[in-house]
Amino acid sequence: MARKKTMKALTSDALLDRVKALGKVSKEAKARDCGYVTTTKTGQSRVNIMKFQNALLDAMGMELDGRGSGEGRMGRKPSYRIRVQSNGNLLVGTAYTSQMELQPGDEFEIIIGRKHIKLVPIVAEADV
């Protein structure tokens, strides 16, 4: 049984040019024509619309998921709430220290209020 040759999916400018050339056809037809088709285990072909649309967005330079240029790590967003640990410590996470541009060795004065704790940076005499 001869296998049908599969076309490599188009990306970037080639994808945009092909979609423009296709004009007013359905998105399924555009995805199929641009190579976004997979073959299932049973031999049926399936159009991968989601992969096609994501490639189209990438080709247009749109970033919907906030990944940016890939610099840095995507961790949890700071909630601005912390809990006392079982040993009684309060842990200020890296999300907060990097947002404040803190460096190892920076010192703070702890001011305890009725319902809050403030960390006030201690400015060294040489920095003033």
Rank of each mutant, 00 (worst) to 15 (best):
L22S: 03
D17I: 02
E107V: 01
G75V: 00
S26G: 14
S79P: 11
M100A: 11
G43C: 07
V92Q: 03
L56Q: 12
R83T: 14
V47P: 10
S45R: 15
K5D: 15
Q53A: 02
A29Y: 00
S12E: 15
P78I: 11
A9Y: 05
A31K: 02
D13E: 10
T42P: 05
A124P: 00
Q53C: 01
T42Q: 07
R83H: 14
S86C: 09
V25H: 07
A9I: 04
S86T: 13
L15V: 04
D33H: 05
V47Y: 06
E101M: 11
P121N: 11
V84T: 15
C34H: 05
D33A: 12
A21H: 06
R114L: 10
D17P: 04
K5P: 05
K27T: 07
Y96I: 09
R18A: 10
C34G: 03
I110K: 04
K8I: 02
L64A: 07
M100W: 10
S98Y: 12
Q103H: 13
G93R: 03
K27Q: 12
V123S: 12
M100N: 09
Q103E: 11
G105K: 06
D13R: 12
G70V: 06
L10S: 04
L16C: 05
L16V: 13
R73H: 13
V92D: 00
V92N: 00
A126F: 12
S26P: 01
K30E: 08
K77A: 07
Y96D: 08
E71V: 15
D106Y: 02
L16N: 06
K115H: 10
E71M: 12
I117S: 10
R3K: 09
G75F: 03
K24M: 09
A59L: 08
R46Q: 01
M1I: 01
I111F: 10
L102N: 11
G61F: 07
L22D: 00
S69E: 05
Y36H: 04
K4E: 13
D127N: 11
T38H: 02
S12T: 11
M74E: 05
T39L: 14
V19K: 05
E63C: 05
G61A: 07
V120R: 02
T97D: 12
F52G: 02
P121Q: 11
R114M: 13
V47E: 10
M62P: 00
I117K: 08
S69P: 04
K20P: 03
S69K: 05
V47S: 07
T97H: 11
F108C: 05
R83V: 13
Y80N: 15
E109P: 00
G70I: 00
H116S: 13
S26T: 15
E101G: 13
V123T: 13
I112V: 08
L102C: 15
L91R: 09
G23Q: 06
G113L: 15
K77N: 05
D58E: 12
M7Q: 14
G93M: 06
K27H: 10
D17S: 02
E63I: 05
M100C: 09
L64K: 00
G88E: 12
S98T: 13
L119M: 08
A95I: 09
L15K: 04
G113K: 04
V47Q: 10
S26D: 09
L64F: 07
R18K: 15
L64R: 00
D17M: 04
N89V: 07
N89G: 09
G70P: 01
M50D: 08
I111L: 13
I49R: 02
T39I: 14
C34W: 06
